[in-house]
Design a protein around this nucleic acid. Sequence first.
DNA 1: ACAATTACCTGTATGC
DNA 2: TGCATACAGGTAATTG
Length: 275
Amino acid sequence: MELPEVENVLRTLPRDLVGRRIKRSIVIFPQRVCCVTSAVLHRRLKGAALAAFDRRGKFILLHLDTGAVLIWHLGMSGRVSVEASLAPMKHLLMAVRLDDGRFLKLYDARRFGRISLAESDHLPSHPFFARLGLEYDDPALTPDALLVSARGFRKRSVKEALLDQSFVAGLGNIYASEVLFSARIDPRRPVRTLSRRELARLLDSIRGILHEATTHGGTSIRDYVDAQGRRGDYQYLLKVYGRTGEPCPHCGSSSSIMRIVQGGRSTFFCPRCQK
DNA sequence: ACAATTACCTGTATGC
DNA sequence: TGCATACAGGTAATTG
């Protein structure tokens, strides 16, 4: 799940969760709990009330009235839902039982999702966030800031840089290809060779694509659904991702969308438009 | 110190 | 019908 999907999960969490107190927590896969023991996690959650929900990059932050923050990362296949019973347990990573009997649940078939807990005063120093890049809508994210960061990558391609969460927080494999197509930049270019002008275009594309995808409820190619179980619409608006062999929607040349592999992940682009 | 590869997982689609 | 392979919204550990 990338930023637009995570944002839509947050937006679709029932508002009446706020104020509910946690009776107990259940961790099915302690291996997915990071930086804190399950025992400490349970102790810190029990009796606390849900206070606010937000996001940093792809991390979901569930703020409690005690100052503790429960952190969930959805990995590739994570799902959040609120249900009346603990069952079904299949693919359940963790759940919290609330004082009204409901369960706030994190499912993840592939178990790449991650769980942690931090104190809200110390969030920036938590290992999840210490090296995380700026939010795409942060005014501090400027072409010059990207230029400085890009120069720090010795020979990474711009596609690989977009997947690196220290460059910009929140992009994943789908939107990295879409952003580069929108900016007309060849994904194979070493990121340090991009001019300030090109990075400005890249930044405009990052902002445009992530905002548009969020507005459309995210991308549901296979499994993704929000916290209400609804699919997004952005899969219908993808210009290059998953469209190998299709005509380019910009230059129109037939079967021009190519798939290549970079860092073990698929990249889709139009070699005619993207220089 | 760095870049490239492998590891962690399960589910689904495809081809023999 | 198996069975083998490829691939999937991500990141960390390991290898050279």
